[in-house]
Amino acid sequence: MLDLKDVQHIAELARLGFTNKEIKNFQIELSSILGYVGKLKKVDIAGTEPTYHPLKIENAMRQDEARQEKHKLLSGFLNA
């Protein structure tokens, strides 16, 4: 089971505000998900490289383009 303090620390890192009751629920639920994904420990990954992305593409570049905005709100700002 995850420590309640750890869960509070993660909530702070994630910038998520919780009530005490919510945080206790998360403690239980996150622990159960951790238990499930723990099965990955059984896979032999020695010598296997990680895959971060299904396609091997590098640095696709394009020109930026300016667009004529036509929203009322925006033209309101511009004419103020």
């Binding site: 994630a14 998900i33 990954i45 990680p50 895959t51």
Partner: peptide, 27 residues
């Protein structure tokens, strides 16, 4: 729930045990 779990998996000390391992299983 998913933001919390993702933040946990990427946080210092757990990155290798969870995120990196999962990306290797992905391979």
């Amino acid at each position: 729930r998913r933001i919390m779990f993702g933040t946990y998996a990427l946080s210092s000390g757990y990155y290798e045990a969870y995120y990196l391992r999962a990306q290797k299983v992905r391979t």
